[in-house]
Amino acid sequence: MRCKSAESSRTMNAPAIHCEQLTRRYGRRIGIEALNLDVPRGAIFGFLGPNGAGKTTTIRLLMGMLRPHGGRAEIFGDDCWRHSAAIKREVGYLPGDLRLYPYMTGRSALRCFGRIRGQDLQEQGSKLAEQFKLDLDVKVGRMSRGTRQKLGLVLAMAHRPKLLILDEPSNGLDPLMQRQLHDLLRQQANEGATVFFSSHTLSEVEQLCDRVAIVRQGRIVADDDLKSLRSKAPRRVTIVFEAQATHEPPAILRIEQREGLCWQCEWVGDAGPLIQWAARQPLRDLTINEPDLEVMFHRHYHAKGEAS
């Protein structure tokens, strides 16, 4: 009895997703290697990486489709391979390459999946379909790619899951629907659900996420909250002098280009020391842009050699 209650408290306190040294290979090729990841409950977590980085492999391991070659993956404290069926009661999943049964309509898919889940999905499904402007009476075989994606999202969310795992959810959606999707995901998170989604679009992650992990060549190269990542991201700085600078610039100001009295620079960190230095210069103009995550992400994507 004590053992059971300890187990239940462990799963109650466990993070939504926990991966430890998770490894999966495809023959000699590495899918993911010793991946460590924790997704806290209630977070909107972005999983970023270029194509082939290991995002879908990680998601397929979490969904119990692939057997890990090393390490383990857990959802709400339960092993993703051994307790796959039980875990999925609480999980809504949208595959990256979504294939639906072509003979089904949206309504019959909700009925069929509802029967399998032992839950009536019609009411919530209809509400979601309305938000996505989706006609539930059209057969999947006659739907466009974007419409099928909308139906996939409706099917993933209709049972009010505690965890949403979405593999590139905005694929095929127009900008209006992408915004609708973002609103819905924020709403789900506000209601206590955890959202874990993969993307290769930084702007989407920036708009939506509390926390981000970047995966490259099967390894996590960054895993932090967005605020902290922003503080590490470079800012573009433009300095226009009245006359030549009188003091040496701070060491961390990286001057990229000098054109007469105009410098294009890059600055990482707090703007305080930069402003102090600038106050002692004969300046005509100083522009400090927002931290540029794009540059940081590109550096992570294209960094040479093994990831840290």
């Binding site: 969904m63 489709m65 069926a85 875990i87 999925k88 009661r89 294939r99 639906l100």
Partner: peptide
């Protein structure tokens, strides 16, 4: 046909 992702995304075991 790729529908296994959707099917096994439901709370059913492969054995069932």
């Amino acid at each position: 046909r790729g529908t296994v992702d959707l099917l096994l995304g439901l709370p059913v075991s492969r054995g069932w």
